[in-house]
Simulated scan of single mutants.
Amino acid sequence: MSNDPMNNNNALASWLQSHLPDCDGRYQLEKFASGQSNPSYLLNCGEQQYVLRRKPPGQLLASAHAVDREYRLIKALQGSAVPVPTALALCEDDGVIGSMFYIMSYEAGDVHWDPALPAIETGQRRAYYQSLIHTLASLHNVDYVFAGLQDFGRPGNYFARQLSRWTKQYQASATQTITAMDQLIDWLQANLPDDDAQSSIIHGDYRLDNVMFFHNSPDVRAVLDWELATLGHPMADLAYYLMALRLPGEGEIKGLQGLDLSALGIPEEAELIDLYCQARQIKSPANWDFYMAFSFFRLAAILQGVYKRGLDGNASSARAIRMGELVKPLAELGLASIK
């Protein structure tokens, strides 16, 4: 983390004093170094610590970086079986720091970046994976109507809408012909399953490094980074998370491909699917090949957009270029997941 120029902001000091009972107006912000698209800061107010999460300044797409949606969702999940930070205050006045922001509790704990969990003893790794699956199932079991989130997205036809959206996004940002991606899109369009009316709150980016664990424990302390959350098909979340078992073991996005899961003490994909279905008391998914292929396609489309923004000078160019190099391999993995 590093110091940030938002320090010494009188408007922010006044707002914090009026919205946080433990803050007398004196504060210190340090930006978290990890690359969230919604910048996040450790907020120190005396002996209390919070997290400030803001919408980036400047011109943005109307639906992008909606931190008010994040705040609303986290607040709605308070007291549920889904561990989340405590939502404390939302500021919709751009005049305070230049963009909308919210304050939530600071949750101290462990974040793991490598799905092989090298810092965890072999005999304990299964418990971490089981905990992640149970937490995801708990999210999908939330009654979103009871939680007041019935208008948080559009229930039904999730994959049809998402396939159309990301196909258009990919084609708009394409910089070369990637045959594997075109073939994957064609297969997905030809094999789109009938809508089965499954709908739940979905995280949209559920992966190991978006979860905070209690220190030296497999118990989840808080699920983080809800920027892509919406109402959608729960299998989109499950397949996206389980992509980690099929991604290469080296590179920008690290996975477990080619590793001996048994020797690592990590459950196989089929076991994790069964565990999820047991937790939700549902049948095993009938269209798993589609869900997995779609997950690879969606990630490839997202990274193609990152690559194009890098070429246009709107993203960190070196990292964007490296991300762009993953589009073709991801499309190939998507094709390989089709049996």
Rank of each mutant, 00 (worst) to 15 (best):
I185Q: 06
A301M: 10
M100V: 12
V211Y: 02
H140V: 07
A108V: 06
K339Y: 11
D68T: 06
G305S: 05
L192M: 02
A116L: 12
Q171T: 04
R126L: 00
S63L: 07
N10Y: 15
S173K: 10
T177W: 00
H112R: 08
S217F: 01
M212G: 01
L224G: 06
Q278E: 13
S14D: 09
Y106S: 13
G35M: 14
E325S: 11
A190M: 05
H203T: 02
A147F: 02
L52G: 07
Q48M: 12
V67C: 11
E47M: 13
S217W: 01
A13K: 11
Y71Q: 01
L136Q: 11
V82W: 10
C277Y: 08
E92S: 06
L299V: 12
I266T: 03
V306Y: 04
L60F: 07
A318M: 10
F146W: 14
F32E: 06
R319Q: 12
Y158F: 14
Q278C: 11
S337T: 05
N287E: 08
L88G: 05
L256I: 03
Y206T: 02
L42F: 08
S199P: 04
Y71M: 06
L231K: 09
R154F: 08
A336G: 15
D237S: 09
A318C: 02
K339H: 15
D68I: 12
K254S: 13
L136V: 01
Q278K: 10
A13I: 09
L264M: 02
Q59V: 09
T135R: 00
L264W: 00
V220L: 01
Q17S: 09
R54I: 04
T230Y: 14
E250Q: 15
L163E: 11
W15N: 12
D196Y: 09
L311I: 10
E271T: 06
L60V: 13
Q49L: 14
E252I: 13
D22A: 08
C277P: 00
G334Q: 04
M181G: 07
Q36D: 07
N10P: 12
S295E: 03
P155L: 03
C45Y: 01
V96Y: 07
M292K: 05
L61H: 07
R125V: 00
N9H: 09
L247D: 10
F296Q: 15
Q78G: 14
A320H: 04
R126P: 00
S317H: 14
Y291W: 11
N7I: 04
L299C: 11
I201K: 05
Y241L: 12
G95M: 12
N157Y: 14
L73Q: 03
Y71W: 04
K339R: 11
R322F: 09
F296E: 11
E30V: 13
P285E: 14
P118N: 10
G98T: 06
M1C: 15
A62K: 14
A197P: 00
P329N: 00
N191I: 01
A197S: 09
E30S: 15
A236S: 06
